[in-house]
Write a protein that binds this DNA or RNA. Structure first.
Lengths: 340, 340
DNA sequence: ATTTAGCACTCAGTTAAAGCGAGTGCTAAC
DNA sequence: GTTAGCACTCGCTTTAACTGAGTGCTAAAT
């Protein structure tokens, strides 16, 4: 177990390193006024802390740098909650002040705020689509040969897709069909739309002419695209600000990782509710070796959970980040509350 | 005026530098088998070319590097048209093979292809919205208090916006209003929508109850957002591949410039039809000092003109880029042909 | 038994000097 | 007009010396 003094020293080292990104030496620790003992004593303690694996040297005669184990301990035990500055509070409040009524806008804005306030890269994952249901289907004819199918969900999400109208189909037929589909499919969860379409199709075909078959297949193709959960990313170029990413190769590989939308989404999805951190190696991706990923959950409606995440170097201002993400996720949840 | 030999030497220097990014020396030029004369002769000629401002030294005893004037001359007079490789042709053809019916998709895909094929950053500007007209307005009620306004244009573009329904308004009223608006506004150019709304408003108010006023103002707010021409950017991170952007500060400032959507859009908009290059200083932005911007126009419908652009270091493979952008813009124009 | 002062040692980083090599400009011969 | 030859330039790379922040260890002080 760590003594009080070791705890203090570890805290000072990590705080200092987070601020300066420079290895911390015994002398600079002894200069802090919370520290009353000499640099020699600190050196002894540091040797112990190093043996226990909380800190490391970058070379034999360098100051100490937190190890991942050190960060983990820091996050778990040494984090003093930090209250946000007035500026930060104001920024967030103002952003949520003007009534936003669309999920996309809220999320986009949140991602922007988070990355601006932190200088890291923010990633927001929408909630699972399990619960999203079809609200209405609409067809807007553009010309004799083409039309746009518009799909509106109960969450206010709108998807649309242009498609060709086979020549033999009249616009009244199309309209009739949409009416039927609407009456049958309203309230159906999007994920079940495909299967439902298949079961409904037989009814429709019996009742109507063969022309419907073709129009229907077109319409289906138009609507059955991906309803995948999208990732919203903010402050991508902030990565370039971090001294640990001086190396372009690292930046490149990190970008490559972030851009794998599916894998990123899976990663975020797998997080539990509440605020969590994955430090360095705890992240599965190689390119994230020197990164920490802080995740927090927000709630949309009663039970749909989404994730906001912050990607930065392991040397992050964890306590400020925690406060920020906490406040932001609450704002998001509040904004969404009672929407559906 | 330049002699044949000087032209040849200039050509070889620029071709070589484009390939290697290294200053080109007289000896390496003399080794090419199109070159029959000795390095000493070449040195003399290079001295002349330098005096005329077509090439430069990076230091007193270095090989030569093309100056911006050199690039300009090269682009204007020395460019041998290059036919694309089969791979490139296939990539483009395949991409345009599956019938895309939405402007956004086509443009997004084109930007992707262009940046993938070139390893530079592609920027595509949509056509002016002058001609875009309202096709249909629709309201989908989500709940008693909220609804989504959907606006479809004759170009198949869909915009939507959620808005609150004031308590005193019934959904029938809303519906009635949308019907009226549709009958009045169909075919109105989007840019005139705002003014038109103001002239129509008096009619409406006379004919109907005061409640409409409030609903109308909400609806108006929902629809009157920006219909600004969007920029589609592809291969942003390709910038990092270029050796001239080893310096993170340059990358940062270039990103900052690109992300100023409005200024970028203005820049592209100001280009004339056809293919053009702006080399280095010819670009107004400071951050683009070492960059060239190649622009090409495409046509949508009969007269709406948009711009595709390629941003890279001045040391670009101009001839390949010209061919690519030529082919791509034609493909785009073809795809759009007869849509509206 | 801790704590601390003192000192030898380590090592990244900086500076300075030396050597290398790609390239030039000039001159004199072809 | 062209070319071979040669002295010269200058960015790079290597090597060596120096600096300074920092360590570990020992012995004295508390």
């Amino acid at each position: 177990m760590l003594t009080e003094r070791q705890l203090l020293i570890l805290q000072v080292i990590i705080d200092d390193f987070i601020l300066t990104a420079q290895p911390v030496g015994s002398r600079s620790i002894s200069k802090k006024d919370v520290v009353t003992f000499s640099s020699a004593t600190i050196r002894n303690e540091m040797a112990d802390l190093e043996e226990m694996g909380f800190i490391e040297k970058t070379h034999s005669s360098s100051g100490r740098v937190p190890s991942e184990k050190g960060y983990r301990f820091y996050v778990d035990h040494l984090l003093s909650p930090l209250s946000l500055s007035n500026d930060e509070i104001r920024t967030i409040r103002d952003a949520f002040d003007d009534k936003m009524l669309e999920f996309e806008r809220v999320v986009q804005k949140s991602a922007g705020i988070l990355s601006d306030l932190t200088n890291y890269t923010s990633i927001i994952l929408g909630p699972e689509v399990f619960e999203t249901r079809l609200k209405q289907l609409q067809i807007v004819p553009l010309s004799a040969q083409s039309a746009i199918a518009i799909l509106v969900t109960n969450t206010g999400h709108v998807e649309h897709r242009a498609f060709n109208i086979p020549v033999e189909i009249l616009s009244e037929d199309l309209e009739k069909m949409v009416n039927i589909l609407n009456s049958r499919l309203q309230g159906v969860p999007l994920v079940k739309l495909h299967e439902k379409l298949h079961t409904e199709i037989s009814d429709l075909l019996e009742k109507h002419t063969q022309h419907h078959e073709k129009a229907f297949s077109y319409l289906k193709a138009a609507l059955m695209d991906e309803h995948s959960t999208k990732l919203y990313i903010g402050g991508k170029t902030n990565i370039l600000r971090q001294p640990e990413f001086r190396d372009l190769e690292k930046v490149r590989s990190l970008y490559a990782t972030i851009e794998k939308e599916n894998e990123m989404a899976d990663l975020l999805r797998s997080e539990e509710e509440g605020i969590h951190v994955k430090i360095g190696q705890e992240n599965s991706f190689d390119a994230m070796q020197n990164c920490s990923l802080i995740t927090a959950s927000y709630t949309l409606g009663d039970d749909q959970v989404g994730t906001i995440a912050l990607l930065g170097p392991t040397r992050m201002e964890y306590n400020r980040m925690f406060s920020l993400m906490n406040v932001l996720s609450k704002h998001m949840t509040n904004t969404f509350r009672g929407w559906y």
